[in-house]
Design a protein around this nucleic acid. Structure first.
Lengths: 235, 235
DNA sequence: CGAATAGTGTCTATTAGACATTATGAG
DNA sequence: CTCATAATGTCTAATAGACACTATTCG
């Protein structure tokens, strides 16, 4: 028997990873970073989700660590950020038992091009995957993030966080359709959005080669709105 | 510069905690364990969620660790188990930077009384809280679990996992009502449940002092069913 | 004017809520 | 029979889907 409980048993490695989404080129894209090419590193040269070890001296909590990682790769300070889940096992990292805390972030299109880190690059999401083979179990984490995003888009206003400050209803609908990968009915879409007390018109129109569209902006400090139905009736 | 990346920087403590729910005495209850009373322990004698450090030698992954904790306290091997989220910060554990991976489990009533550990006890959930003051940030984790459970009960079949093998529709409705803490319409409830292809009648009736009720059981290997609407229209 | 997109209206289908009505067993 | 609860039926309200129709700009 010892007076103090023993705490120097081996501990898992602890990391935070962030799945960063944005709409770019009319498609859902995700930001990946290339791992260092040194052979001493796991998965040298492979693409991976932005993230890394928790710094117990510098990170106050898990979310602060996620915010730090996000800012380092994109320059963006406060986008929509939600915890996705955690993945931990003896085998997911060749360096030993490790657990990662995964977050997902939604970036407005105009911020997504800004202060990108040199090792970072946008990739189109195809299905729930991305072209390159990902390091660690990041393909699985990405798939979970895409499924969660799609699912929540059915009954929440999350896509509003992917829009620029001012946008038209057809543009918002297009964002929904890109994420869901399926067309929505214009009429039902407009009714839902306008009834949600989520957006307000600004005194401007989007001019184009045809009929101009009303511009809207998010109401101030808007938490995501939850609807009581999904878009589609049961299949 | 070194050949191998450095891995011996300080690591957070890593734990798994499980919020275990069951219906007992016509109420939603949660299983808590009392912490050891030694003054060298954090929160001596306080009630806490079942859980503890990940054993990197014995636990294959996080879920295996959660299953181990659950079995140790209840004897139950495979209930409904879902990841809830993770909580990590410099301050949540006086022993140092720590992160916990939280799960929540739903136990059928008849298994909830069985092989309880000596330090474990059931407590009624009142609101999103429990009477005793909980150790660490476990009150916050419990609150998140209750809110998540309530929210999902609005549009899923999760309460089915709180039922015994055979049950009547009024009994299932009562379980929904206990979790939601609000009455539901019998007619709409029955329509939804019977349309869900979730349960099947068995050739028995529940006898009572009045009209007997049809007994049902869960269809085999049933994943939770998701409905496209919540129970209530928007408030 | 025509082309194209924005925006509205009409009709149907689904399903929840409210609540009335019928069914079945015990005593 | 009465009582209690199970089970069903009827009507309304809300909202999604389908799709037709009108509105407004450019060229």
């Amino acid at each position: 028997m010892q007076e103090k409980p023993e705490l120097d048993f081996p501990r898992p490695l602890t990391t935070v990873d962030v799945v960063i989404f944005a709409i770019r080129s009319d498609a859902l894209q995700v930001l990946l970073v290339q791992r260092p090419k040194a052979e001493s590193e796991p998965f040298p040269g492979a693409w991976a989700l932005p993230g890394g070890f928790v710094d117990i001296a510098g990170d106050r909590d898990l979310e602060a660590c996620a915010v730090r990682r996000l800012k380092a790769k994109t320059g963006v300070v406060s986008p929509y950020l939600e915890q996705l889940g955690s993945w931990g096992s003896a085998t997911r990292d060749p360096r030993g038992w490790s657990a990662t805390h995964a977050y997902f972030a939604l970036l407005p299109e105009h911020t997504a091009g800004g202060a990108l880190a040199g090792d970072a690059q946008w990739f189109a999401v195809e299905g729930e995957k991305v072209r390159p083979k990902l390091a660690f179990d990041h393909a699985e984490i990405l798939q979970a993030a895409v499924l969660r995003l799609r699912n929540k888009v059915e009954y929440t206003s999350l896509p509003a966080y992917l829009m620029p400050q001012e946008f038209t209803l057809p543009e918002l609908q297009r964002t929904y359709e890109i994420v869901l990968d399926r067309p929505l009915e214009k009429s039902a879409f407009r009714t839902r959005m306008l009834a949600a007390d989520l957006i307000e018109p600004v005194a401007k129109m989007r001019k184009g080669p045809n009929r101009p569209a009303q511009l809207y902006r998010l109401k101030k400090a808007k938490a995501p709105v939850f609807f009581t139905r999904t878009f589609n009736p049961p299949g």
